[in-house]
């Protein structure tokens, strides 16, 4: 028998994947709210990436003092006005974007790294492993996250790094829940049994058959959690347990601005708008992803 021993080209091997990707892009693009979310998220990422070049007064983010310029209303020179130190608010809001981005990425990343393996193990192996993992998760879930995070930050001491650690510690249980339910359902799928019937190891089954089929809900949850994690970190900053002024951080800025309300409204409004837009963007984006990746799941 003469078989052409030619490795299929990349395009051949992935033709179906590419077709599917094009379909996803097409159906995502049909939803205006998804596209708005995508636009906001992209804008946020661009501002985070190019912040130092966008900000007109980059030094103002490090706590410079221009006391002659205190609390100026929005104008051509200072689009968002200035704060009580005379710093340009636009520069500070723009440069705080980067802080928020890495806060969100770190918290969601840590939560995924801790939560997904635990959830997969609990769902797939069942028995004692599942009982232990799920009870611990339940304990964490039964305490309101932000309250627990407050306690942890209080113990570790205020600061943005400690805030991130605290929020990561309270964030993972949601992922355990999500992945456990999915892995539990997948464990008895005939394709998993078929893999076992050819002698595949547990590790291979987890990596090749269980995890790839859990990724859609994980991606959806992670994209929505980006917004929520940024909001939670800002909340910590607001009550003085996260980033400390003069470091640029939206929550901490609002915290100081609070005392200048309502006469110097621009001081609180622009950082607040930044938080609002970012959370809205990630939520719309996550919703859009859910509609294409996970169409059967319930709309929350």
């Amino acid at each position: 028998m003469s078989l052409a021993l030619r490795r299929a080209s990349f395009a051949e091997r992935h033709a179906a994947s590419l077709r599917q990707l094009r379909f996803f892009a097409w159906s995502f693009g049909r939803s205006p709210s998804s596209m708005l979310g995508l636009a906001i998220v992209l804008g946020f990422l661009l501002v985070a990436a190019f912040g130092p070049w966008i900000a007109p007064y980059p030094l103002d983010a490090e706590g410079a003092m221009n006391l002659g310029n205190r609390l100026k209303p929005p104008a051509a020179a200072h689009w968002f006005g200035t704060d009580e130190m005379g710093n340009d608010l636009f520069s500070r809001v723009v440069l705080a974007t980067r802080t928020s981005l890495w806060v969100g990425l770190t918290i969601v990343g840590m939560a995924t790294v801790i939560g997904v393996p635990l959830g997969i193990a609990a769902g797939y192996f069942g028995g004692v492993a599942r009982a232990v993992i799920m009870r611990v998760t339940d304990v964490f879930l039964s305490v309101p996250g932000i309250v627990l995070a407050l306690a942890i930050v209080a113990a570790l001491g205020p600061g943005i790094l400690n805030g991130i650690i605290a929020l990561s510690i309270v964030w993972w249980p949601g992922y355990v829940r999500l992945v456990e339910a999915k892995a539990l359902a997948l464990r008895n799928e005939p394709f998993v049994e078929a893999a076992r019937a050819v002698g595949a190891s547990n590790l291979r089954i987890l990596a090749v058959h269980i995890l790839p089929n859990c990724t859609s809900p994980i991606i959806v949850k992670a994209s929505m959690d980006m917004g929520l994690a940024i909001l939670a970190a800002a909340s910590l900053g607001f009550i003085g347990l996260g980033a400390k002024p003069p470091a640029p951080e939206w929550g901490a800025m609002i915290s100081v601005a609070r005392t200048y309300m309502p006469n110097w409204w621009w001081y609180a409004v622009f950082p607040g708008l930044a938080i609002y837009l970012t959370v809205l963007g990630f939520n719309l984006f996550g919703d859009g992803l859910r509609d294409i990746l996970d169409p059967k799941s319930n709309r929350g």
């Binding site: 091997r13 179906a16 799928e189 005939p190 394709f191 078929a194 893999a195 090749v208 058959h209 790839p212 089929n213």
Partner: peptide
């Protein structure tokens, strides 16, 4: 349900 929906026939 006997084929993993994420994997190609190959």
């Amino acid at each position: 349900s006997a084929l993993n929906p994420r994997r190609t026939v190959f």
